[in-house]
């Protein structure tokens, strides 16, 4: 595990790319701050949602969670480790400066209560072991250095032995496996929360610290009789498309509230292509207030 914010993450990207290619389990706690460049240290924002998805070159699937509370930071850290170990994929825990600075009550689980998933170990002899030979779930068992398996960790396009093979056949097989091992195991990744969405005419989509304000706003509007709900994806990447469709099923309008120029809204629009999806970008170096969000939303309601 490592922890960083935008400037550090930008420097780490080549290593992230290596971790994707070598299928190294890895958790990155990414605390977003205002950017670009040095921006404002210690101040907040949600600018880097697309960066974590597309930072590395090449094609791949990556996993990112967006917690909204200290409790969820704790819970999703455990989940991030389990996912990265199970799928041998980097997982990004996408927090922000606002969350990093708040104090909240947290329930810490007893050691026996926590479900821990560890990477699969080889089941074949040292002579027969191939470091990138997948099992049915498309994830290869992982031998570690010093165990006698003569592992070859390879950053170049490689076959199941880890041998460099510059061919269409091997490149296609490898890239699709790196993508599909995440896609085919998506059920273990999904995590979201819906509030008052069953009969909602308006659904707000918000994640991370901004979702706290969005939730307060939605509750206020509900109590004044407006049929509005909140869908909060905890998993940002890969997108839980079915979860989003389900949560917005009754909605006439969908608002995507973000503390940036409106970036995740493009994913939402792509998935809900026959709905009216409205971007509500509110840049605030702390957290957008419910009033500030409502001010932008009001003209569309």
């Amino acid at each position: 595990m490592t922890a960083t914010s935008g400037p550090g993450f930008s420097l780490m990207v080549e290593g992230l790319s290596l971790a994707i290619m070598t299928e190294t389990p890895l958790v990155i706690a990414y605390v977003m701050r205002a950017g670009p460049s040095t921006g404002i240290a210690t101040k907040s924002g949600q600018y880097d949602v697309m960066q974590v998805r597309w930072a590395a070159h090449g094609n791949y699937e990556i996993v990112a969670y967006a917690p909204w509370s200290v409790q969820e930071l704790y819970d999703l850290t455990i989940k991030s480790f389990n996912v990265s170990e199970a799928l041998r994929v980097p997982v990004i825990l996408l927090s922000d400066a606002a969350l990093a600075h708040i104090w909240e009550r947290v329930v810490i689980a007893d050691p026996g209560e926590v479900i821990i998933i560890n990477r699969k170990k080889p089941k074949v002899s040292k002579e027969l072991y191939r470091p990138f030979e997948p099992e049915e779930d498309l994830v290869p068992p992982m031998a570690c250095f010093g165990e006698g398996y003569k592992v070859l960790v390879e950053s170049l396009t490689h076959d199941e032995k880890g041998y460099y093979k510059p061919s269409n056949e091997v490149q296609r097989k490898l890239v699709w496996r790196l993508v599909n091992k995440v896609r085919k195991n998506k059920d273990m990744l999904f995590d979201s929360a819906s509030y008052f969405t069953e009969d909602a005419e308006y659904v707000v989509v918000a994640y991370g610290s901004t979702a706290r304000s969005a939730y307060a706003l939605v509750k206020d509007l509900r109590s004044s009789g407006i049929k509005i709900g909140l869908y909060r994806p905890k998993l940002l990447w890969p997108v839980d498309e079915e979860g989003l469709i389900k949560a917005t099923y009754t909605a006439k309008k969908v608002f995507v509230v973000e503390n940036n120029i409106g970036v995740y809204v493009n994913e939402v629009s792509r998935i809900l292509k026959h709905r009216e999806v409205i971007s509500i970008p509110v840049i605030d170096i702390e957290v957008p207030t419910p009033d500030a969000i409502f001010e932008v939303m009001r003209e569309w309601m």
Partner: peptide
């Protein structure tokens, strides 16, 4: 060289 060395090996960035 790590292509050919029969040890636990890593060819990184």
């Amino acid at each position: 060289a790590t292509f050919y060395l029969n040890f636990d090996s890593a060819h990184v960035i």
